[in-house]
Amino acid sequence: MPKPKIAFYWCASCGGCEEAVVDLAEDILGVVEAVDIVFWPVAMDFKKKDVEAMPDQSIVATLLNGAIRTSEQEEMAHLLRRKSQFLIAYGACAQLGGIPSLANQFSREQLLRYVYEETPTMVNDAKTRPQSTFQNNGHTVTLPEFRNVVRALDQVVGVDYYIPGCPPTPKITKAAVGALLEGKLPPKGGVLAPDIALCDQCPRKATKPTNVSFTEFKRPHTTHLDPGKCFLTQSVVCMGPATRGGCEAVCTRGNMPCSGCFGPTSRVRDQGAKMLSSLCANVASKDEGGISGILSGIPDPVGTFYRYGLAKSLLRRKVDLPTDGDRAKS
């Protein structure tokens, strides 16, 4: 019997998800044993043409990581969708937009101008910018189109399953691959991680009293973090209560608060809104000035509540940014 064909692909992400696959360590051998990796550009030499040549649905599963930012990524997402029985959004960027989708607070023009003209390390007197086509010595050189909006994978093509995390832990990756190989997958559309918030498995859970209210908010770099106590008890924002568990609390075990990479539970439509709701309701002050004083301890609400999920938040993006891709506008 031929081994099931598996593909990995990398879109707009840091590469950590690729590392996560390698992080399976010796277990990767089992995976390699069990499957036939037909496409994995980061590790093996395949070309797009090779994929195009494959029959439709011939790949059992593609694990695609990264958000979708460019036309090339879009094209690959469509192609892999067509060639795969299961398209799996692997990691926070593919699932939720991830850190790259924080760029949805800025227009394409703002981003390009900053990166190619305004960063302190940039020397670019000619103000050259990447262009999608360029003529050189009679040859046309092309680059993918840089889109206005960062998207999660399911905002471009249909997605069958999600494996959350920044990056997904070896354990949930292994469990997902196992379920896939054994044909024990849940109904389509699900996230392959427990549907309960992180606190359930956080070792600090017991240290949180039942009456925590906030008289201030501290940021991890401004305070000494107690290695044993619930972060919320220490007035440090921890997204754990609003974030799906399954990561085995790697961050809180490493003395850093949860920043939300596993995304919301299935019962929540907007992770940031829910965390905001819970956190702010428990602010101690009873007058407007006092409340805003305490809340000023969270200087960047978008970055705090939507660190991994702006693309999949209800508003998706800063709503007054231009949509036409016109570079003249900011």
Binding site: I196, A197, D200, K205, N211, V212, P241, T265, S278, A281
Partner: peptide, 21 residues
Amino acid sequence: EADCSGCKSCIPLCPYTAIAF
């Protein structure tokens, strides 16, 4: 019950102490 992670965020919000851990 199966969904609750036990984060205790709700408990101080109830003015009637209807929520317990």
